[in-house]
Design a protein around this nucleic acid. Structure first.
Lengths: 245, 245
DNA sequence: GAGTGGTCTAGACCACTCA
DNA sequence: GAGTGGTCTAGACCACTCA
């Protein structure tokens, strides 16, 4: 009952081939975020392998958070829209434990030409069109984080302030729902730098105040970068938390 | 062929019970860091379960990095001594990619009484005896990180500068080899703060220079905290990098 | 060639969900 | 009660290591 054995380039176990086929269906949109995928038995028939092999493929995809399993209900395509966390991937926390007091406010949205650095980081030509979103993230009142977000124009045609506001400034949920761009993971580089100019004004701190400056690149399927974000964080009452295993 | 079914407190699948039994043998020191544990077949016999059930238990422990599997050789207890990375868990990187230029220098070692905060974080009484290690981490020449490390006295009886230097300032490897304390994971909180006093001197920066200040708690088996560390990082030529899934 | 972990199967039964 | 994912078994064969 072998299958999918069409000239393996280098050796891949069956369950990884199945994993690849499932991923292809996710990328192509055959199953969309929030929807359920076929049951393990159905997938086993479709690919002519045992249920155990499908399970192993699905388990790896669930570990990578591309799929979510619910016993008794089925397996679903992971979606930021359904996440209970308003800001996935955000590691900034208030010093007191009050995690969910954070909310975001849109400042403005600009059509821009991407500078050389940004274009390169997004694997585009210098001067390609793009978007610049500026926003504040804050617990009631005091702005703690000022963010500049750069997006490639081609993937986000039709973006507008109203679209962002409809989604309550929850960007990754908006990317997914309105532009079919699903963020899978992010890379961050953090430095401590003095506040100045516009940033100091927005965060209402004295010029020279140390800030956490976080440069993020966000990736979608195929390790393709689709968002650049620079966050300036006033760490007087907030910190960046991390768990390392 | 059921086993280990002695009055489950709340329901736990068999493989988790096996996982627990294996963990107990790790904690008790029956199998020590770097050593191999019995083969999957032997464990299956020992616990009267199938090889598949043992595999599932071992897989979770391997995912948590308590065990390391080597096809054809066996399964081994994870050890910092054998790790190729000199500083496990360290996320500070030079801005240029030159990752492995980092080395550490011991400044000094003090016997101290733990202050209230530190004692509480280590789940000890205020005034308990402890150790304070101060060191610098640097790529050739320029000090980039100044660290103060606090340890509970009870777990590190007999610590001395010579012990640290024997281990080439690789602390987690030293904890394991000399004191049977294995660090499994760490929690970090990061802020941006201005340099001052002693810290500014050690890092050779002007007072007021923004620094990354990283407060780390390190845990061993049973989620028990056994090290506190405060790292002051000059992020002029270095950054803290993070990958979030 | 003996022993190890890695993959795969087929089939059983369990826990959970929902109509 | 039908359907889902979750656990467990017994047995086969493969890839790798080492003497």
């Amino acid at each position: 009952m072998k299958a999918a054995s069409e000239s393996a380039p280098d050796y891949q176990p069956l369950y990884r081939q199945i994993k690849y086929l499932i991923t292809e269906s996710l990328v192509s949109g055959e199953w969309r975020p929030g929807e359920s995928i076929p049951s393990e038995m159905q997938l086993a028939q479709r690919y002519s392998v045992s249920q155990g092999t499908v399970r192993k493929a699905v388990s790896e995809l669930a570990d990578q958070k591309l799929l979510v399993r619910h016993q008794g209900k089925g397996t679903f395509v992971a979606s930021h829209s359904e996440e209970r966390t308003k800001f996935p991937f955000l590691h900034i926390r208030p010093d007191d434990g009050d995690v969910e007091s954070l909310s975001a406010t849109l400042l403005d949205l600009w059509r821009i030409k991407l500078d050389a650095r940004s274009a390169a980081a997004l694997q585009l030509e210098e001067g390609s069109s793009g978007w610049l979103i500026r926003r504040l993230v804050a617990p009631a009142g005091v702005a703690a984080v000022y963010e500049e977000i750069r997006l490639p124009g081609a993937s986000f045609e039709g973006l507008a302030e109203s679209v962002i506001e409809e989604h309550d400034c929850m960007l990754y949920s908006m990317y997914e729902a309105s532009f079919d761009v699903r963020i899978l993971y992010v890379e961050e580089k953090i430095k401590a730098l003095p506040a100045k100019g516009e940033v100091a004004l927005q965060l209402e701190v004295a010029s020279g105040t140390p800030l956490l400056v976080i440069d993020r690149t966000a990736f979608t399927y195929g390790d393709h970068p689709v968002e650049l974000r620079r966050s300036y964080c006033n760490s007087a009452d907030h910190h960046y938390r991390n768990h390392i295993v």
